[in-house]
Structure formats: C-alpha cells, structure tokens
Computed example of a mutant assay.
Amino acid sequence: MNRRCFLGSAAALGAGTAFPALAQTDGTTEVEADVSQTVRRNMSSFRSLDWHPYFDSLRNGAILVDTASRALHYWNEDQTIYKLYPTSVPLSEDLTRLGRTSVIRKVEGPSWAPTPAMKQRNPDWPDFVGPGPDNPLGTHALYLSWQYYRIHGTHDTRKIGRRSSNGCIGLYNEHIEELFSLAKVGTQVLLI
C-alpha cells in the first residue's frame, strides 16, 4: 500500500465517522451533553501565547485561563517556565466568571461542599465530600479570591476539554499537581 492509497483510505474512513451534536441553550451558548458520550473537541486554538497582552508584569507568576480555547497558561516570575494545560470550563456563560483574581490558598487533598446555588440546582448532591477518589476537586486545588471559584484537579478525565463545570476550572490531576508546585499564594490569575 502506498502513501496515496493510505491517505485516501483514511480520508474515506474519517468521512463516515459521526459525532454527536452539541445542544444550544440560547442559540449561542454551547452546552455539552452527558460526559460519557464521545464528542469532538476543538483544539485549533490550543496554542502557546505571550503573556505581555494580558499582564503588566509576571510578579508572583501569572495564570491565564482562556475559556474559549479551554486552555490554562502559566508563566513563572523570571520567565524560565511556561506551561500550557487543557482544561474544563463552566457549563454555561451564566456560570462563567471572567476577569482578574489571584491565588489566595493552596490545598493538597481538598474537601468539597456544593455552593448554595449548586445545591438548589442539584438537591440530591451530598452536602460534603472529603478528600479521595469521589471528590470533584481531585487531588489539589488553588483557591481564588472569588468566593467558590477554584482551579482544581478532577478524577473524571472525560471532563477536560469540555464545558462541564459549575464555575471552576478543572485540570487533569497530574497537571494540577504540577501547577500546584509552580504557583504560589499571590499568583495573579486572569480568566478571559
């Protein structure tokens, strides 16, 4: 089989693959269905960025979360480390908070309790989940100055790359562990 035959076969096979549609809640907001379904992810805008358009300096390091590309960018203070991670983002625009904040606390093995709004939307959810494999915050959490907002891990890896959170930014546990070791209290954060 030559290269041309291989490419033609691959294109024909790919053309027959069907992907589930994304629901539109208001004609403009994408909300993905059950995380157990297979969906096509948009990785076209998942690219490295320069920090200059977003921050005046890198004092204490900087985290940029791009909710459109579902990516988190981290730069350390002396510009020797740059990291780019795929993320989960909030389910809808009304759950998304954009703007400037900072890391105010770091917790390894966080516990979780639903916010009052989450409990109202999901009354069957538990009132508290301690650290461990059932905890929706994963293994590590960076608490932001905005009440109830976190950058945290997740044990449910299907959520990464999707609109799947109730407001927080989720990372694979191995990525939040790395970011946790790099970021410090006072690291500036911008969500766009």
Rank of each mutant, 00 (worst) to 15 (best):
Ser102Asp: 12
Ser145Met: 01
Asn135Val: 13
Arg121Pro: 04
Gly132Ser: 12
Gly167Gln: 15
Ile169Thr: 09
Ser111His: 09
His155Thr: 09
Val103Gln: 07
Asn135Cys: 15
Glu108Phe: 08
Gly161Glu: 08
Pro123Ser: 13
Pro110Val: 07
Gly153Phe: 01
Ala141Lys: 03
Lys119Cys: 10
Arg158Thr: 11
Val89Pro: 07
Ile151Cys: 02
Asn122Ile: 09
Gly161Tyr: 01
Ile160Phe: 12
Asp94Thr: 10
His175Ala: 13
His140Asn: 07
Arg150Asn: 06
Gly170Met: 06
Glu178Asp: 15
Ser111Glu: 03
Leu98Pro: 04
Leu144Gly: 04
Gly138Asn: 06
Ser92Leu: 07
Leu142Gly: 00
Pro126Cys: 05
Arg158Gln: 10
Trp146Tyr: 12
Leu95Glu: 12
Tyr149Asn: 10
Ile104Met: 09
Gln147Gly: 04
Ile160Gln: 08
Arg105Trp: 02
Ser92Met: 08
Gly161Lys: 03
Phe128Ile: 02
Gly109His: 04
Thr139Pro: 11
Ser164Gln: 07
Glu174His: 15
Leu98Phe: 01
Pro110Lys: 08
Pro90Gln: 11
Leu179Asp: 05
Asp94Met: 10
Trp125Tyr: 14
Leu142Ser: 04
Lys119Ser: 09
Ile169Tyr: 08
Glu178Arg: 10
Val103Glu: 05
Trp112Gln: 04
Ile169Asp: 00
Cys168Gly: 09
Trp125Pro: 10
Glu93Ile: 05
Val129Tyr: 09
Asn166Ala: 14
Leu144Trp: 03
His175Leu: 12
Gly138Trp: 04
Ser165Pro: 15
Gly153Val: 01
Arg150Lys: 07
Tyr143Gln: 07
Phe128Val: 00
Asn173Leu: 02
Lys106Pro: 05
Asn135Gly: 14
Ile160Tyr: 09
Ser164Val: 01
Pro126Asp: 07
Val129Thr: 14
Ser145Ala: 07
Leu179Lys: 01
Leu142Gln: 02
Gly138Thr: 02
Asp156Met: 03
Leu137Gly: 02
His140Arg: 10
Arg105Pro: 03
Glu108Asn: 12
Gly109Asn: 03
Asp156Glu: 11
Trp146Val: 06
Ala117Ile: 06
Arg163Phe: 07
Val107Gly: 03
Ile160Asp: 08
Leu179Ser: 05
Glu178Leu: 08
Arg97Pro: 01
Lys106Arg: 04
Asp127Phe: 03
Asp134Met: 14
Lys159Gln: 14
Trp112Gly: 00
Leu142Glu: 05
Gly167Arg: 15
Leu137Thr: 04
Ile176Asn: 11
Lys106Glu: 09
Pro126Gly: 05
Tyr172Trp: 11
Ala141Met: 01
Ser165Asn: 14
His175Ile: 13
Asp156Cys: 04
Ile151Asn: 04
Arg121Cys: 06
Thr157Gln: 15
Asp156Ser: 07
Ser92Ala: 11
His152Gln: 09
Pro136Val: 11
Asp156Arg: 01
Arg150Phe: 06
Gly99Asp: 00
Pro133Gln: 12
Arg158Cys: 06
Gly99Asn: 03
Gly138Glu: 09
Ala117Leu: 15
Asp134Leu: 13
Thr101Phe: 10
His140Glu: 00
His152Ala: 00
Val107Cys: 10
Leu144Val: 03
Pro136Ala: 13
